[in-house]
């Protein structure tokens, strides 16, 4: 059963408890910054008359995990997309590829690693809720099973259709995410992309990569065939030249 978060922007009061709790839980240095960085994994900011959180969406089929050449990023069974800093060599393809621009880098360190929300994976395996959800004083961010959260979100929209945009963000975006959001303001105005395909981007590359073995076989035989024909042609030409010179003799 995968777990997740539901963020209800209409309930958020912008107090920033979630961001501070995140810093403390993950022992991140410094104050909470304006934007998410390698040292600030979540922020909450006023936008368009409401408040918006920014954090890793924990995709169902994470693009970052699919592109990582060394498999440092993985989707765990409980839902969090976790990061093994010991494997990472710092190619930063995950930053490039993430449809939500989540992974951030330690640009100021000689031995840098990626920083991003890991959905308090350690706490979840112990059966606890995430630090941000626990810290939220008004229940704007709640923790639970993804399926339950989806039902909860849809109920809230159904009960108050005027108060919400009729869309649960994260239900289908980039193949669906473990973090879900609902709001009274259209999501594109809150800085979220509304044009993300429901097909996970990772499938696009897999369509190409999965064909490599058969491609290698066909192209290899083809190239050898070319060599075979051209070399044979040379041999024949040589043999003919030889017989012709024999005939002349």
């Amino acid at each position: 059963m995968t777990m997740g978060l539901l963020f209800d922007a209409t309930r958020c009061i912008g107090c920033g408890s979630c961001a501070s709790a995140c810093k403390e839980q993950n022992k991140l240095p410094g104050e909470v910054e304006e934007r998410t960085t390698a040292y600030t994994w979540t922020t909450v900011k006023p936008v368009e008359g409401t408040y918006m959180r920014k954090l890793c969406m924990h995709c169902q089929v994470p693009t970052c995990a699919s592109v990582c050449p060394v498999g440092a990023l993985t989707k765990s069974a409980e839902g969090p997309v976790v990061y093994d800093a010991k494997k990472c060599m710092g190619c930063r393809y995950c930053m490039m590829a993430c449809p939500f621009d989540v992974p951030k880098y330690q640009w100021d360190r000689p031995v840098p690693i990626i920083g991003k929300c890991i959905l308090c994976a350690g706490r979840i395996t112990k059966g606890e809720s995430t630090a941000c959800a626990t810290a939220c004083p008004v229940g704007a961010t709640i923790f639970g099973k993804r399926d339950d959260l989806i039902r909860d979100a849809q109920d809230r929209i159904k009960q108050n259709p005027i108060g919400y945009v009729d869309h649960v963000y994260g239900l289908t975006e980039a193949g669906g995410t473990s973090v879900l959001m609902i709001s009274s303001v259209p999501f594109e105005k809150l800085g979220l992309k509304n044009d993300l395909p429901s097909e996970p981007p990772a499938l696009r590359t897999w369509q190409v990569l999965s064909n490599i073995p058969s491609f290698v076989a066909v192209w290899g035989v083809f190239l050898y065939g070319i060599h075979w024909i051209t070399a044979r042609r040379d041999e024949v030409a040589k043999a003919e030249a030889h017989t012709q010179s024999e005939d002349r003799r």
């Binding site: 699919s66 990582c68 050449p69 060394v70 498999g71 060599m89 840098p112 590359t205």
Partner: peptide, 22 residues
Amino acid sequence: LGQPWRIWHTIIYWNTHSVMFE
């Protein structure tokens, strides 16, 4: 690379879904 001394990690940690790996 952020940590170039780990470039050999592609040899031992495999992710065949990654274009970068290929």
